[in-house]
Amino acid sequence: MIIANTLADGFVVFLTADNGWTHDIADGAVAETDAAADAMLLTAKQAERDCVVIDPNLIPVEIVDGRPQPTEYREYIRANGPSVPTPS
């Protein structure tokens, strides 16, 4: 999957199948092949040049309970938010 932050608000987003961006990882596109991943990264880099997102990266994911989830814990936290409750 492609993970990035939007330029204007900085929040984490994922590239969708129709080359849009979503905050919900479940709506993000999962590349099944290297070629598909490369194409998605090209799309994301163009979005970066177009000042839509910053710092787009390709990350490995696995499907857990029907939802994609990053396999690396850093990206897991980036995708899901802090692992501790935020003060309220």
Binding site: D9, G10, V12, I54, R78, P82
Partner: peptide
């Protein structure tokens, strides 16, 4: 220089 970082989840 104006105190703005990009962190893991947001600025």
């Amino acid at each position: 220089m104006n105190g703005v970082y990009l962190q893991l989840h947001a600025y």
